[in-house]
Amino acid sequence: MHYDFVPLPHRKRLEWPGGKRLAVILTINFEYWDPVKDTDRVIYPGGPGIVGGTLTGRTYDNPNWTWREYGQRVGVWRMFDAFEAAGVPPSCTMNAKMALERRQVVDYAVEKGWEIVPHNYEQNELLTDYQDDEEAERAVIRETLRVYRETTGRDPKGWLSSSLRCTPATVDLIAEEGLIFTCDLLNDDQPYLVQTRSGTPIVSIPYTSEVNDFTVFMRQGKDADGGFAVFREQFDWLYREAATSARHLCIGLHPHVIGQPFRMRALTQFLDYARQFDDVWWTTRAEIAEWYLQHHAAHI
């Protein structure tokens, strides 16, 4: 994986279509965790658990598994209601097993026409497990994309690795599969090009671990007021900077975290706040990638 180091002051002005100032993407992560795995090692939990302690993969972890399932059964539907009431389309990411095991959630997003980004096969499975076995990593990616096509009826455009744990070869492999963007890199507020060994560039559309409900609520312990304050502060600062060159804002959301009743107000208040700005581009990652591929020469 290679990308040029071009610091922000050394770039030309970035412009979004229609003179929009700030591209905003609110991400709902559709994630599925196998209850058990045939291993004696501690399986990666996909974020902090609601109950502490670690169990081996073959041991069923009831409180942490059912806490996450709350997001699929209840929380995500609460979030859907909020986005529909605001008239704002989220960008969804999807584990392949989410489509296989929780099809109703995926079908809802498909019917609404919302963006859905492939998000690995299963949330506990990390591509870094295959860093020294490229063929195994390729097989996981291809199977994820096969399920994606079969269950959404769409051709995939981009990729987000489980827990952002890609390998140095991931961008090469997704380029070979015809994808045009990755969300795995956290190092910018604007898109940029990542070179691949095939010669076909991949657009990096940064995700975020900072403005993310796991970080804000689970690690920092914010309440609804605190969560809204973080979301608004991130928006306001980027919006101010975007007066000279356009910016991109992503907020990462998980249905079992922000979908809890006592946290939902942080999301609905932010939606109400951001909708007041006429020059915000409520867009998809695919739209950003396609625009950037056409216009990046004027930027970097």
Rank of each mutant, 00 (worst) to 15 (best):
13 R>N: 02
34 D>S: 08
37 K>G: 01
74 V>A: 11
116 I>Q: 11
16 W>R: 07
95 N>S: 13
85 A>D: 14
50 I>E: 06
101 E>C: 15
32 Y>M: 03
45 P>H: 11
12 K>H: 12
53 G>I: 06
27 T>K: 01
32 Y>L: 02
116 I>L: 15
53 G>C: 08
93 T>W: 03
93 T>G: 05
68 R>P: 04
13 R>Q: 06
33 W>T: 06
100 L>A: 00
25 I>F: 06
17 P>N: 12
79 M>W: 10
106 V>H: 08
39 T>A: 12
47 G>K: 06
44 Y>P: 00
32 Y>D: 08
16 W>T: 06
39 T>R: 13
88 V>E: 03
18 G>L: 15
78 R>M: 09
97 K>E: 06
90 P>W: 02
82 A>Q: 07
95 N>H: 11
98 M>F: 08
51 V>M: 09
67 W>M: 05
65 W>Q: 02
107 D>Q: 12
100 L>H: 00
116 I>M: 15
71 G>I: 10
21 R>A: 07
69 E>H: 10
36 V>T: 15
32 Y>A: 06
58 R>E: 10
111 E>T: 10
109 A>T: 05
91 S>D: 03
58 R>Y: 11
68 R>C: 10
69 E>A: 11
41 R>K: 11
27 T>E: 01
106 V>L: 15
77 W>I: 12
31 E>H: 12
86 A>P: 08
91 S>T: 09
115 E>C: 09
67 W>T: 04
108 Y>H: 11
20 K>L: 12
13 R>P: 00
